[in-house]
Design a protein around this nucleic acid. Structure first.
Lengths: 182, 182
DNA sequence: CCGCTCATGTAACTGGTTACATGATTTA
DNA sequence: TAAATCATGTAACCAGTTACATGAGCGG
């Protein structure tokens, strides 16, 4: 099977970590994620399952509950192998690249605004990030108790990165004040 | 004109910040960006210019150099207005969302690897991030001198976020050692 | 005159989105 | 019994990608 897309690999990983589960279940997980970068739409998920099954990376066991059919998928040995090699090591160079960030893109053109509006933008953005930080910190405390360490790890990552973004915006704000002789 | 895509807005912003320039020039800028999330392919750029022109956000002045034609675009008043409202304020809620990050996605499924390979992965990833950090720090020192403050600002952002990611991975590494009674 | 850069495009493809459509099971 | 949830899919669309194709101007 050729290279996985990010979505394909993500689905494969979820099937691995969840154990046998239906596409619908994966859909729910993706939708309930705190910041879902994928829509988790049926139109994306089901074709991914078909591709993974076609490549022999997952296998379905159809189980009927009354008249209602549901296909629970699990990773095959080859699927786990592919998942592992997708993760790495080796880690690809692009791992160092900054993730594409809509906030960053906007800051890049902040010069198009009046200084007053630049200030308003930064104030707004910091407030949003700070509230997000609180959410994710709450989340993190709860996840600490669970046995699987990786959801907690994810939350820690979110905290680190969100703090960094706040610090960055605050720094820009300070630079603004300084430049205008405050 | 309806909502801009990120690429459309980015192109509009570049036209604004560069002054009159050809699609080709924008293409070069995108390709030379330290971590280009867009391919900067003609197949993307030229249609974007068409859409922006169609919406009256940019205007072209055809200038001939001998037999060779080139169309230099600049933002219109309406284009600048749209760019400003695209940037904000108000800042949309999703600005707090973590940007989609391939490294994060991989870490999420790190549990699929043996602990030894987890360690190798983290070691690899940290090395890559550290070398990236050096690059961006060098970059930053150079940009500090330039008059336009925003490229420098971008570099500062890159430093903050990259440092945060390193700290995060180091934390995971430490947790690994601790868990295994090192 | 060869190759590089400037410059402009087109065509086929692809992965993911939105919106639609259906029906069984569970719960209030 | 009505509404929510579980469960599976399809069809039209869309933005961006890869690869192709062309040609002028310029430096060695």
């Amino acid at each position: 099977m050729a290279d996985l897309t990010e979505l394909e690999a993500c689905v494969l990983g979820l099937i691995w970590s969840e154990g046998p589960c239906t596409p619908y279940r994966v859909q729910q997980i993706m939708k309930s994620s705190p910041s879902p970068h994928w829509s988790g739409s049926a139109g994306a998920i089901y074709p991914v399952f078909e591709r993974l099954e076609g490549g022999g990376l997952v296998r379905a066991r159809t189980r009927m509950q009354g008249k209602r059919e549901s296909r629970a998928f699990q990773t095959t040995a080859s699927g786990l192998r592919v998942l592992r090699s997708w993760i790495g090591p080796p880690v690809s160079e692009w791992a160092g690249d900054l993730p594409i960030d809509p906030l960053r893109t906007r800051v890049r053109f902040l010069g198009a605004l009046s200084v007053a509006r630049q200030r308003a933008f930064l104030h707004d953005a910091i407030a949003i990030l700070e509230s997000k930080l609180k959410d994710v910190q709450t989340d993190c405390r709860e996840l600490k108790k669970s046995e699987d360490p990786f959801p907690y790890t994810m939350a820690r990552g979110a905290i680190h990165v969100t703090r960094a973004r706040i610090k960055w915006l605050a720094e820009i704000e300070a630079g603004l004040d300084e430049g205008n002789g405050e």
